[in-house]
Design a protein around this nucleic acid. Structure first.
Length: 909
RNA sequence: GCGGGUGUGGCGGAAUUGGUAGACGCGCUGGAUUCAAAAUCCAGUUCCUCUGGAGUGUCGGUUCGAGUCCGACCACCCGUACCA
């Protein structure tokens, strides 16, 4: 073996091989053999923030392993890359630094593309685009119009966060502790007209489709199923308790109706008179627990329920301020104030659910459907959501925790009606914890003695018989509001005309392009402030009209980009139908688990919409056949004594103390958390590439942690990865035997046969690890093969074969090093084009196996037996083992369990 | 609050189906090589009251056998519909 070993130099080697791949158009799907089976590998495309971060490196390194592995396995692989380029950060930059969002975004893309290319990913850059390219969002506008034509788009009033100081809409992220993040003003909810995608049209299909996604993580399917939230229950009406009669306000000739109002509550008769429509005949509620109707203690309606709005006198006040303004007092005013209090909670589900329970007793009462003479009070409550069910519930405090909290706070009765097994009906009390489990119904009239399930059926049947309601299916899923009052997004192609209403922009007039001359000096939507952009003639009657100034939610951009990747950058349609239909669904999609619900559900909606508009031939409607969700990249946080965050690059260890390098201040190491700019615990991948090369960075992010789990970046870990690359290099440079590494060393015996066996067993383990997204175990196996080769002294065909296996196995992880090594040992062509190694089955079996022997479940010895030994023989050998005999002294053997190929357990006492 | 996940040596983790807990890597200790260092190579490294015993977040259960299954709990992380 040669003693002269030159050091592997990534800084010259990596650009060389990247140029070789590019010259060979190795990753250009159009250049690949079209007769091969196709494979679409895709990672969630990045937002162009300006710098690539370790999370990107990890995500794309994983995708690259799959893409390169599948290519080696004989697939024609499509592995594209693009940019999710619309969004708020660009507008924030414009506002804070005076840079135009467009320039900022495209500069960021350029700044990120370069290091991504230096990482040597097997990406088809010929298909690159950004969602802010006019060509792309033009087609998105066409899709919007097609969806509208298909009945998948409508307009609806929805709530937004309103900053009364900036006079603008804020994202949830921009609301901190209920206040605007810039203005500090208390945020109110405000209703605005919004464009909405009818995702609920596919609620059932989206739920059913989950069952077919057997290559998705179980947890993601569970989360989506829970998000869609199908529940069967009862829609029913509680009839009003009637005593006094008021004239209807809007049309006195209509039949009159009335309410019972508790003493002490005095509504203006006109307020009650205004309550019309469905409310007239009773209050409609939805429940999944009709079995507990006898435990009803109150009715609660949302503060946005039409009844609550009516009772607050709001509509009358809005319509006839001069007439009713001066009468605005008393209970109407109190309800109005209560509604304002509720509207300050915020629009997020979390804020609503964690807020203190607030209620307002309206004084109105409804009749219990089953109990003659019993009435229930109607409350307005802040925990009831208008967006789910009917916006009204009946409260059964004994068997619902939220209802119980509410009842305890307002001192409402808590009648128990479900008796848990083993409890006594006469003494049972729920205390502070509602009982939601199975049990037997009691105190429940005709339902007494029934189980929860039977009680639900019986109660629904009875209500249906009484014609008070019907069994129904509800979904938690809400339609997708897509209007955003922002500039840096895809303009919604609609024109408003006083005569014709909301008119779609004719397809020939697309794109509706964003104007470049916009100002970010005033808060709010720059498109709205633009002096001329929105003024256009109505496409239908040519009278002066106004453009929609809202843009689409950026989630729309990422809901169909994969189809554009597959179907080409067509200018006359969103993508080529035949091409896109050929590649889709994506065979393997990889991204962060934070997208488990929204992005993935929206994309599943879009592909169904595209299918039903005839744009895509995808019967299942499923865009992603395989999904993998990776964990985050984390790093320890460093802080000095003043609590100031310190970059890891500025921390050194001296005499067991952590100090800043520049000023020598003492630093403490804090939690290991997700890398973020604000905590300064980021590692710049570009620094790592410069110091160690792309291969080492890639190898390290894949080596230690299971891909699904969070990955902790440590400085020592990178050094280990660096050393490993040197070890492989040394193995190759030390080998003098040259030839075709694809040849099998069939005549090997002794040590040479052992190394062959080791290498072939390693192939299976490495392959299994890649297939199952357990790259860390593939890496461990590669380490073992490397160690075995280091120990193996022969310089012969067996060594060359094993090296050929090793190099092809590391190629998906460290492709540049693999190419360099491949060329050195005599491999033909690019290692990228070399076939994935295949294990020779005859080298995988062993004649003898070593089995542990337990006595009473504790390991006492080890025996070596022929692989095909019978159970009886194994038992005999085990019973004779020296240590086992010693342990069994004075004990009686009761039972011997032999698990072939696994273990022997002797039970003795 | 609700939905989902994670928890194993000093550290990252392995053990895919209930069958030898700690593979592999990092770190550390000792040795070889070297004028010396780096690099490389070899050996050791869960803990303890050590012929034995304990041990996979905590408590309890099922089993011949539990990191793995069941029940209760604790801690942390992700999502929660306008962050991407």
């Amino acid at each position: 073996m040669s003693k002269i070993m030159s050091r592997y130099n990534p800084s010259t080697s990596e650009p060389k091989w990247q140029a070789a791949w590019e010259a060979a158009k190795a990753f250009d799907a159009d250049e690949m053999d079209a007769s091969k089976p196709s494979y679409f590998a895709l990672e969630m495309f990045p937002y162009p923030s300006g710098r690539i971060h370790m999370g990107h490196v990890r995500n794309y390194a994983m995708g690259d392993v799959i893409a390169r592995y599948k290519a080696a396995c004989g697939f024609r692989v499509l592995h594209p890359m693009g940019w999710d380029a619309f969004g708020m950060p660009a507008e924030n930059a414009a506002r804070d630094k005076g840079i135009h969002p467009k320039g900022w975004t495209y500069e960021n893309i350029a700044a990120m593309r370069a290091p991504m290319k230096r990482l040597g990913f097997a990406l088809d850059w010929t298909r690159e685009f950004a969602t802010c390219d006019v060509d792309y969002y033009k087609q998105q506008q066409a899709i919007f119009l097609a969806f509208k034509e298909q009945g998948l788009v409508y307009r609806k009033k929805s709530k937004v966060n309103w900053d009364p100081v900036e006079n603008s809409v804020l994202a949830n992220e921009q609301v901190v502790d209920g206040k605007g993040w810039r203005s500090g003003a208390v945020i109110e909810q405000r209703e605005m007209n919004q464009w909405v995608f009818k995702i609920t049209h596919y609620a059932e299909e989206l739920l059913e489709g989950l069952k077919t996604l057997d290559r998705w993580p179980e947890k993601v399917r569970t989360m989506q199923a829970n998000w869609i939230g199908r529940s069967e229950g009862l829609n029913m009406r509680f009839e009003w308790e009637q005593v006094e009669t008021f004239q209807r306000f809007d049309n006195p000739s209509n039949s009159s109706f009335s309410f019972k109002v508790d003493s002490g509550v005095n509504y203006n008769p006109i307020t009650l008179g205004k309550i019309t429509g469905e409310i007239e005949n009773g209050l409609e509620i939805f429940t999944t627990r009709p079995d507990t109707l006898y435990g009803a203690s109150f009715i609660a309606i949302s503060s946005d329920h039409p009844l609550a709005i009516s009772l607050s006198h709001k509509e009358l006040l809005d319509t006839y301020p001069e007439k009713f303004g001066n009468e605005y007092s008393g209970v109407e005013k109190e309800i109005s104030d209560f509604r304002v209090k509720c509207s300050q909670i915020g629009t997020t589900e979390e804020a609503i659910a964690t807020a203190d329970k607030l209620g307002f007793d309206t004084g109105l009462r409804v009749k219990h459907p089953f109990i003659e003479g019993k009435t229930l009070p109607v409350w307005i409550a802040n925990f009831v959501l208008m967006g789910y069910g009917t916006g009204a519930i009946f409260g059964c405090p004994a068997h619902d925790q939220r209802d119980l909290d509410f009842a305890r706070k307002y001192d409402l009765p808590v009648p128990a009606v479900v008796l848990p097994e083993g409890e006594d009906a006469s003494s049972y009390d729920v205390g502070t914890e509602a009982y939601t489990g199975e049990g037997t119904l009691f105190n429940s009239g005709f339902l007494d003695g029934l189980s929860k399930e039977d009680g639900i059926k019986a109660a629904i049947a009875k209500i249906e018989e009484m014609e008070l309601g019907h069994g129904t299916v509800q979904y938690r899923l809400r339609d997708w509001g897509v209007s955003r009052q922002r500039y840096w997004g895809c303009p919604i192609p609609i024109i408003y005309c006083d005569d014709c209403g909301a008119v779609p922009v004719p397809e020939t007039d697309l794109p509706v392009a964003l104007p470049d001359d916009v100002s970010f000096d005033i808060p709010g939507n720059p498109l709205d402030h633009h002096p001329t952009w929105k003024d256009v003639p109505c496409p239908s009657c040519s009278k002066p009209a106004r453009r929609e100034t809202d843009t689409l939610d950026t989630f729309a951009d990422s809901s169909w980009y994969f189809a554009r990747f597959a179907g080409g950058n067509t200018s006359d349609r969103p993508f080529d139908k035949a091409e896109a239909s050929k590649w889709l669904p994506v065979d393997q999609y990889i991204g962060g688990v934070e997208h488990a619900v929204l992005h993935l559900l929206y994309a599943r909606f879009f592909t169904r919409g595209l299918r039903d508009c005839g744009l895509l031939d995808l019967p299942s409607g499923e865009p992603f056949a395989g999904l993998f969700t990776q964990g985050m990249v984390t790093h320890a946080v460093f802080q000095d004594s003043d609590g100031v965050y310190i970059e890891p690059a500025n921390v050194e260890e001296k005499d067991n103390q952590l100090l800043t390098i520049d000023t020598g201040k003492i630093v403490t190491k804090g939690d290991v958390i997700k890398m973020s700019k604000s905590k300064k615990n980021t590692i710049d991948p570009e620094d790592i590439i410069a110091d160690y090369g792309a291969d080492v960075a890639r190898w390290f992010v894949l080596s230690d942690s299971p891909p699904a789990r969070d990955f902790e970046w440590t400085e020592s870990g990178v050094v280990g990865a660096w050393r490993f690359s040197g070890k492989v290099w040394n193995l190759v440079t030390a080998t003098e035997f040259k030839g075709n590494p694809l040849n099998a060393a069939d005549d090997a015996t002794g040590d040479a046969l052992d190394i062959r066996k080791f290498a072939h067993k390693a192939i299976d383990k490495i392959t299994d690890g890649i297939e199952a997204f357990r790259f860390n175990t593939s890496v461990a196996q590669i380490y073992e093969l490397t160690n075995a080769l280091t120990k193996y002294k022969g310089d012969d065909a067996a060594r060359l074969e094993a090296l050929g296996i090793l190099i092809r196995a590391i190629a998906p992880f460290m492709p540049h090093l693999a190419e360099e090594c491949w060329a050195m040992i005599g491999g033909q062509g690019l290692c990228y084009h070399a076939p994935w190694p295949k294990a020779d089955a005859s080298l995988l079996t062993e004649d003898t196996v070593t089995l542990p022997v337990q006595v009473n479940g504790k390991r006492r010895g080890e025996i070596s037996v022929p692989a095909d030994a019978s159970k009886d023989d194994v038992e005999k050998i085990a019973m004779a083992e020296e240590n086992v005999v010693k342990t069994l002294e004075g004990l009686t053997v009761r039972k011997v369990i032999v698990v072939p190929g696994r273990i022997i357990n002797i039970v003795a006492s």
